[in-house]
Design a protein around this nucleic acid. Structure first.
Length: 212
DNA sequence: CTCCCGATAT
DNA sequence: ATATCAGGAG
């Protein structure tokens, strides 16, 4: 199947119709909490992140509070999320910067966010999109896999995919499309065993039934 | 490219 | 047993 511009538009139309109510799965009650939750979500399910954050956010809901407990305690608290030494180290460093350079606030600009330790393009895009309404397409493992399968965008790196998707998707749909693709990746277009048999996109998907 | 890493699904 | 999970840094 050759994925033309018209087919991509049809893919997006179906995704929107199916996942119109898609929203962030991570739980948070302020800007700082969302930033922390997204950092913790690297190579970890959102469900597990929520279990951990429900336990720690009542105490650690500000960068000053998190900074004060130190790396070792933070490591123990977030251990269940995996990659815990890097994440704890990065979070403490980020908290230090937020407290001393941003008055304890989470910066609003992508260029500022991406300079924070442990914050890359994906995390920065989620923050500006979810918190500040800036059009952005955060390319995580689901967005990358699903987009490549649909050939909505074809890329070998997340950053390349981000650029391809920005061209394939109308700007006013960027942030929503990010959530459509994640929901689709979780529910049907799974990494291991995609459910092409019950997929509403199968007739416009060049990979339908072909994924090992 | 490798390393970080525990929990879960298959 | 192995692949994968809202990645990022060296």
């Amino acid at each position: 199947m050759r994925v033309t511009k018209a087919i991509k538009a049809e893919q997006l139309r179906i995704l929107e119709k199916t996942y119109f109510d898609a929203k962030p799965a991570l739980e948070y009650s302020n800007d700082f909490e969302l930033l922390v939750a997204v950092v913790l979500s690297a190579q970890c399910t959102d469900e597990r992140v929520n279990i951990v954050t429900r336990r720690i956010f009542p105490e650690l809901n500000t960068p000053a509070a998190m900074l004060s407990i130190g790396v070792k305690k933070l490591e123990m608290l977030i251990k269940d999320c995996g990659l815990y030494k890097s994440k704890a180290n990065n979070l403490i460093k980020t908290c230090d910067i937020l407290v001393h350079q941003y008055k304890g606030e989470v910066p609003h600009e992508f260029e500022q966010l991406i300079e924070l330790p442990g914050v890359g393009r994906k995390t920065a895009n989620v923050v500006v999109s979810v918190l500040y309404g800036t059009p952005a397409i955060a390319v995580d493992t689901h967005v990358f896999r699903v987009s490549n399968r649909l050939k909505l965008g074809v890329a070998s790196t997340p950053e390349e995919m981000e650029l391809k998707l920005q061209k394939a998707i109308p700007k006013d749909k960027w942030s929503a499309a990010h959530h459509w693709l994640i929901y689709h990746g979780r529910r049907l277009c799974k990494a291991r065993k995609p459910l092409c048999g019950e997929c509403m996109l199968a007739h416009v998907c060049p990979s339908a039934g072909k994924v090992v």
